[in-house]
Amino acid sequence: MVKIGNIELPDFPLLLAPMEDVSDPPFRRLCKLHGADMMYSEFISSEGLIRDAMKSRQKLDIFDYERPIGIQIFGGDEEAMALSAKIVETVRPDIVDINYGCPVKKVVCKGAGAGVLKDVDLMVRLTKAVIKSTHLPVTVKTRLGWDEDSINIDEVAERLQDIGVQALTVHARTRAQMYKGHSDWTHIERVKNNPRITMPIFGNGDIDSPEKALEYKNRFGLDGMMIGRAAIGYPWIFNEIKHYFKTGEKLAPPTMEDRVEAARNHLTWSMDWKGEHIGIVEMRRHYTNYFKGIPGFKEYKQRLVTTNDADGLYKTLEEITEVFGSFQFVQQ
C-alpha cells in the first residue's frame, strides 16, 4: 500500500496525469472506469482562480466517484499560490498538487510551471506558501531540471520533502526536451534510492504499453507511475497494465463495440458537464484517438467532427459499429 497523507492507494498505483484540455471530468470518469487509481484535474492558474476566471473555476469541478482526486495549480507568486490553495480547499479534493513541470512557453514566461526549475529557492517558497494555507496533503509534479546541464531533481526532492511535500511525481525529461526525445528514468531511480527520501516517488514519461510498464516497475523500483498521453483515446491502458502485472498476459484489445461505447460515453458526459454545444465541439479532438488505424474511416471521421447535434453523432457512432464491427484491432 502507498500512503499520501491519509490517502491509501494500492501497491504500485497507476495515476492519470493532469493534461491541459484533456483531463476534464468526462475523460477522468472513463479512466477511472478502466482502472486509474488516482487522478488529477487539468492544471489551474492560481491567478485565474483569484480573478474568478470562468475557465479556471470550471476546472474545480470534481465528483465523488472520481476519488481519490487531486487538483493541480500553478503560478509564480507566493501570495497567489497560497490564496488559490485556499480556494481549491473549498471544493474538498483529496490532494493539492503543484505543477513545476509544464514546459509550455506562455506558462514558463510567467515564471511558473517548469520555469521554476531555474530557481529552487523560489520553488521552496511557493510550495511552503501552499502547504501553510491548506490542511490537505500537498504533492508536486516536476521535471528532471531545466536542461541536460542543470538536472537538479536530487536537490529538489530533498528540499521539497523537508518542507512537507507528501509525494513527488517526476516527468523524466528536462524542460528543454519538452515532450521529445527519450525520457530517462535513471534520475528518478536515484532519487528513490536516496536514503533521505521517504515520500512516495512516482515516475512519468513514455509509458505506453503493459510490457514497458512492467519493465520500468521492475527496473526502477519506484512507488507507482503516472500515465498521460498513452491514455488519450485509450483509457483501457490502466486495466491492461494491471492485468499484465498480475498474469504476465495481455488482455485482448478493445473491440470496435468497446471503442464506440467509450466514445459515446465520453460524448454524453461531455455534454452533461459542458452543455450540448460545447460538449460536442470539444469532443471532436478525441474521436481520431478512439478510432486510430481503421482503413476507410475517413468519411466517418469527417461526420464526427462536423455534425452539430447529439442525435446525428449517436447515429454515426451506431453506424460505425455496424460497418466496422468485425475489424480486428491488433494489440497496442
Score class of each variant (00 low, 15 high):
F202D: 02
I62L: 11
T307G: 07
A231Y: 07
T321E: 05
R259V: 09
K110T: 15
H34E: 10
T186A: 14
L144W: 03
R259E: 12
K192W: 00
N265L: 15
K250S: 06
K110R: 15
T321W: 01
K132V: 05
S56D: 14
W185V: 03
M271D: 00
S326V: 03
K141E: 01
S56N: 13
H277K: 13
G145H: 04
N99M: 01
R125I: 01
H187W: 13
D52E: 15
T306M: 11
D223I: 04
G224V: 07
L267N: 02
E42Y: 06
S270W: 02
L83G: 00
F220S: 06
A230V: 10
Y40H: 08
P137F: 11
G221S: 08
K242R: 15
G5N: 04
Q177W: 04
F27W: 13
N265E: 14
I280Y: 08
S84M: 07
D97P: 02
S209F: 08
F202H: 11
T174V: 09
W273V: 09
L251N: 04
N239C: 01
M271K: 04
V323K: 15
C102F: 08
M271W: 00
V96K: 01
G228Q: 07
P137L: 12
W269A: 01
W185Q: 03
V170T: 01
T316Y: 14
A112R: 04
S23A: 10
P295T: 04
D97R: 08
T316K: 13
E318K: 11
R125G: 02
D272N: 09
D21N: 09
L317C: 07
I73S: 00
A82G: 11
I207A: 01
D97L: 05
P18V: 01
R229P: 11
D154H: 15
V191K: 06
K3F: 12
V140D: 01
R143H: 11
A80C: 07
W269D: 10
N218P: 02
I227E: 05
Y290K: 12
R92L: 10
Q58Y: 09
V2S: 14
A167E: 04
S270E: 13
Q161M: 10
P195Q: 12
F202I: 09
P68C: 09
K250W: 00
V165I: 13
S45C: 02
S56I: 03
L122A: 06
M271Q: 04
P200V: 05
V170H: 02
I95P: 02
E240Y: 02
G203I: 04
Y65E: 14
H286F: 15
G248Y: 06
A252Q: 13
S133Y: 00
N218C: 03
E257A: 09
